[in-house]
């Protein structure tokens, strides 16, 4: 695991950019301290020997469920909750 002292504002900013969050300087400072605290406490996971242990993505084994491959019409109005639309389309921000 990452040593807690390697967590700095720059890393928090990089993570926030990836997550599409604009953080204020105050938030970056606060989250840096808090993330250090949290990851320091979570280092205890290293004590558990997990060699040859399979990860559990779910609590129990989940099998894939397939539906019939046929098209269906919406039974509801997909644009009902958007304020940004043009005709029958969602209107989004500029891509470039």
């Amino acid at each position: 695991m990452l040593d807690y002292w390697k967590i700095d504002g720059e890393l928090i900013k990089r993570v926030a950019d990836n997550a599409r969050l604009k953080l204020t300087e105050e938030e970056i400072e606060k989250f840096t301290i808090q993330l250090k605290d949290v990851l320091q406490a979570f280092k205890s996971l290293d004590e558990v020997d997990t060699n040859d242990v399979k990860p559990s993505f779910h609590p129990q084994k989940i099998s894939d469920v397939y539906r019939e491959d046929k098209s269906e019409k919406f039974s509801w109005e997909p644009l009902a909750n958007t304020k940004h639309k043009e005709g029958k389309y969602f209107k989004g921000p500029r891509i470039v």
Partner: peptide, 19 residues
């Protein structure tokens, strides 16, 4: 874009989504 909080569409998608 599709539901919930909407702001005025300004800037590119990165700027808008992040805001």
């Amino acid at each position: 874009m599709r539901y919930g909080l909407h702001l005025q569409l300004q800037g590119n998608f990165d700027e808008y989504f992040s805001t």
